[in-house]
Design a protein around this nucleic acid. Structure first.
Lengths: 249, 249
DNA sequence: CCAAAAGTGTTCCGAGTACACCCATGT
DNA sequence: ACATGGGTGTACTCGGAACACTTTTGG
């Protein structure tokens, strides 16, 4: 066992973090993902997921929060780990010094590993920060271009996770405003899962029956039509029966 | 951006892989997990998950398969990534040379990150390999002791994943024998999910209705009672409706 | 013949689906 | 008044849960 260390030298890794940051623009019914434009080779001028390398004294999750905070100013968000990519061929990460001499040789042992995180942020309050970046933008999911480093697969993976999360966990309430109408909630779900996930009135009754949405009594009027009640998510009431699967679809 | 590299030095990681290897002993209705005993400090003589460090030219997944192959000889298995732990306090991984001089100082930049994998192997054919280990054993899930490095949380996480996987994916058929009775299948599920997940006869009808279990016509008699039909998993038939959630619970 | 295990059928109930319908407000 | 969106109710259907029942073997 001790001898194996010399016979089989260990790999040394730099660890990168890539965030799939989603936001839901309920007004326009668009599911958005945050992309930034690369300003260095390789893949210069390609869009990619916001990412960074993990620094000393920092955990990968810290790094995920840091890159998020560097790109957008947001109060309410949900974040969780997605997947770790570490194939040898993925290791040609570019974020090393481009002019590094002896690069070809170093590639043998300078390896990169990418931990991807998945985040959901409240759209209304999210301010993009464009400091020293050649591009940063919300992209509608359908319009996402070819990303650098084949990050499209990470994005797809994140999208699947988002859909699943919605069905059995209350992530939606992390990014909806404090007070929301049932239609807001419905639009949110419809935007992410597609129009045909459920009838509106059935969605209503199902959610109300679950018992963790409190009618505040306040009404809000949006143009024509009867004013809608504003509801509030009751975390305590939810936690009581969070063991049961709560299926929305 | 370029300047940040010098102001914020990056962390260098050794990457470890820890496997949560499950097996189901249907004969005795026990859900088992593979543990090995540590033979070095820290946590000498503590049980832990089988793990290794990623070598040069090897992907984390390769490493996961390698450690699995080093510990048990098995033909049929299922393996997938679980989660990556990289907290700074987790970094005091022991598998560095114990006598390393200047260790205290090195801890600042020699960091460890653990990618955990989750595996399910066929119990009947699994032969444990005890080469140069001070202990290796299948542990019944209820009897797992305190593990080194608080790996119990990884184990719990893996257990949750196993339960979920069973409900919507055909992992069971990867580790059941080619031909099995419906009771074998039921015992498998009951062992993992608990006795009370479903009535046997309802389980039968539900699974048969799904249409991917072919009755081979062969019968097998086990002691008293009517002989049971041997069934075979039809992967092609399954793939047709694998989009639909197949809920067993 | 009886116990034991495999396999079938039946009844009941609750949850999802698809609607039709009432209510309150702006214009 | 009427269009518009909010909100309620109902009838139907399908699938799961519980459990009784039949079938085929070994002893």
């Amino acid at each position: 066992m001790a001898g194996s260390k010399t016979r089989f030298p260990l790999a040394e890794f730099k660890v990168g973090v890539d965030n799939v940051i989603f936001s839901v623009d309920t007004a326009q019914n668009r599911l958005l993902v945050l992309l930034v434009m690369r300003d260095a080779e390789p893949y210069r001028d390609y869009w990619c997921l916001p990412g960074t390398l993990v620094r000393q004294g920092e955990s990968p999750e810290d790094a995920a929060y840091r890159i998020l905070a560097e790109k957008i100013r947001v109060k309410n968000l949900y974040l969780e780990q997605l997947y770790t990519f570490g194939e040898v061929e993925d290791s040609r990460d570019p974020r090393q010094d481009p002019g590094d001499p002896g690069k070809e040789h170093r590639l043998q042992w300078a390896r990169y590993l990418s931990i991807s995180y998945f985040a959901l942020v409240r759209f209304s309050e999210a301010e993009l920060i464009a400091n020293g970046v050649s591009g940063i933008a919300w992209y509608s999911l359908q319009q996402v271009p070819q990303l650098a480093f084949s990050q499209n697969r990470i994005l797809e993976y994140g999208h699947r996770r988002l859909c699943n999360k919605l069905e059995y966990s209350p992530v939606a309430f992390d990014v909806l405003p404090e007070l929301f109408t049932l239609n807001d909630l419905y639009q949110f779900y419809a935007t992410v899962l597609g129009e045909n996930f459920s009838d509106y009135s059935n969605f209503r009754t199902r959610l109300l029956k679950l018992g963790f949405l409190n009618d505040t009594g306040e009404k809000v009027s949006r143009g024509a039509g009867r004013p809608a009640s504003l509801y509030k998510f009751d975390a305590a009431a939810f936690s009581l029966h969070k063991d049961k699967p709560m299926v929305f679809i």
